[in-house]
């Protein structure tokens, strides 16, 4: 099993565009910190939970989309070798799970890098960080996306790649619209970044005081629904995946 994981990790992650895009994502995160977050979101402190939440959400969104892209491209072309992989000792659904777990670990590690980058930046510049609020923002933005990646990974092998690309564009569009306050707002936002900007703006008192950092129930519910969606897709994929491949392999043999 270890060998399979190592082999799959090599196949999935050792592609030239993965480290390049990860590096671009980190540079973008640094740029976000130094150009946008440094000014503070909705007149809150740059080191407030609001500002960090927006930063984390934006970073997570691009990492999430990158992870989905990796999943789609790693599954492209696998159908050609399905005949061989299906007759190996490991079942296709387990193989799918391994793949999605590898991408999920990659996603979480990337998010952790973004999280650490933010903490180091704010600590260095302002000598103040609010780790509790930051962790809450990290978990609420990254975890539902991680669960969605696991879920999507289990079904990605059976989907046409075009569906995956459309999904990425759709998620990106919904998130960008959410950031502009159009559509369902932060309830539909894939990474939940817009919550921190929208709600801090709504709560801003204009009485020359700091807006207290709060996590609303509606936001937790929206993030939980995203996580549930991931679990549902995972359940569907895990119980149903592989059937088509086996059918195909029987036909081909």
């Amino acid at each position: 099993m270890k060998k399979i994981i190592k082999y799959e990790a090599k196949i999935i992650l050792c592609k030239p565009y993965v480290p390049i895009l990860l590096l671009i994502n980190l540079l973008y995160s640094y740029y976000l910190l130094s150009a946008d977050i440094i000014l503070g979101v909705s007149d809150t402190a740059p080191f407030s939970g609001w500002s960090f939440g927006k930063y984390m959400g934006s970073g997570v969104l691009w990492t999430f989309l990158l992870s989905l892209l990796i999943l789609i491209t790693s599954n492209a072309g696998r159908k050609n070798v399905a005949v061989l992989t299906n007759v190996t000792g490991i079942s296709p659904k387990k193989l799918n799970l391994v793949r999605s777990l590898i991408v999920t670990v990659f996603f979480l590690l990337s998010c952790l890098l973004i999280f650490l980058l933010g903490c180091v930046f704010l600590q260095t510049l302002f000598q103040t960080i609010r780790i509790g609020a930051y962790l809450a923002a990290f978990l609420l933005t990254a975890l539902p996306c991680a669960i969605l990646i696991i879920g999507f990974g289990t079904v990605a092998g059976n989907l046409h790649p075009a569906f995956g690309y459309v999904l990425i564009v759709l998620l990106l569009a919904v998130s960008l619209f959410a950031a502009a306050g159009i559509g369902g707002g932060y309830l539909l936002d894939a990474a939940g970044a817009s919550y921190y900007e929208t709600v801090s703006g709504l709560l801003e008192s204009f009485e020359a005081s700091e807006t207290p950092f709060v996590i609303r129930g509606g936001y937790v519910l929206a993030r939980s629904l995203y996580a549930c969606l991931g679990i549902a897709v995972f359940w569907f994929g895990y119980t149903g995946s592989g059937k088509k491949d086996r059918f195909l392999s029987r036909m081909l043999s």
């Binding site: 000014l39 503070g40 007149d43 809150t44 402190a45 740059p46 801003e204 008192s205 204009f206 009485e207 020359a208 005081s209 700091e210």
Partner: peptide
């Protein structure tokens, strides 16, 4: 109003 609430003006 926005200016009065600006973080850097407050701090």
């Amino acid at each position: 109003k926005k200016q009065n609430n600006n973080f850097y003006l407050r701090n």
